[in-house]
């Protein structure tokens, strides 16, 4: 499909902020994804149309979050949205793995993706964390995050990306309606810094697959 026509797709325009459907902007972002260090990633602020995101946040707040705890993490999480009956959350999931959005992600990243995703809501509160790991599991190609709350850098909850020397080389601070994603590989070491204030860090996250 011709890219300029593809960007006129109805569902893309319904969900995504206009500035990310501009051909020239996308070209720049595509380059940025490849050039970013310590590994390929993008952080797209005000990514979705705000009216959609507010509905999603309202819907998510009605869902049940379950405690998750292991050697690696402590936080709360919903079931995968495919198991949730809420229409708004189902619509969002359907959009993320629609042909239009998968093609959009393929264009930005240069990867060939399958129409398969994982998606769930997460809630990190004071003392919750996710320690350093690489996310590698069969077929996972892109890890993504949609932030639904605002955190300050000194409040924790930042997504830290490590370089090959195991130093934090990039810090992504959660801001409402920022869509961030990175390539999953043996280099994609990252952590979610412990939240150290009495605030709720809410996000939707998951993976796109190439197998």
């Amino acid at each position: 499909m011709d890219l300029k026509n593809f960007l006129k797709d109805k569902s893309l325009n319904e969900w995504i902020n206009d500035k990310y459907l501009d051909f020239n902007n996308l070209e720049e972002l595509r380059k940025l994804f490849l050039e970013n260090k310590p590994f390929s990633y993008l952080e797209l602020k005000d990514f979705f149309n705000e009216n959609k995101i507010i509905k999603i946040l309202k819907s998510l707040s009605k869902e049940e979050f379950h405690e998750r705890e292991s050697d690696l993490f402590k936080f709360m999480q919903t079931e995968d949205f495919k198991l949730i009956k809420n229409k708004t959350l189902n619509d969002f999931r359907n959009f993320l793995f629609s042909n239009a959005f998968i093609s959009f992600m393929e264009y930005l990243t240069g990867f060939e993706l399958k129409n398969k995703i994982d998606i769930s809501g997460s809630l990190y509160q004071n003392s919750d964390y996710l320690l350093c790991h690489d996310d590698q599991l069969e077929g996972r190609k892109i890890a993504y995050f949609l932030y639904l709350s605002n955190m300050e850098e000194n409040e924790g909850g930042n997504l830290n990306l490590f370089n090959a020397e195991f130093k934090v080389a990039r810090k992504i601070i959660p801001k409402f309606n920022t869509f961030a994603f990175f390539e999953v590989s043996d280099k994609s070491l990252h952590e979610l810094e412990e939240v150290i204030v009495n605030k709720q860090r809410i996000a939707i996250s998951g993976w796109f697959y190439d197998q």
Binding site: D71, S127, Y129, G156, E194, I196
Partner: peptide
């Protein structure tokens, strides 16, 4: 065996 993360508390 693992030792659970020590938090800000």
């Amino acid at each position: 065996r693992f030792i659970q993360y020590v938090n800000n508390f």
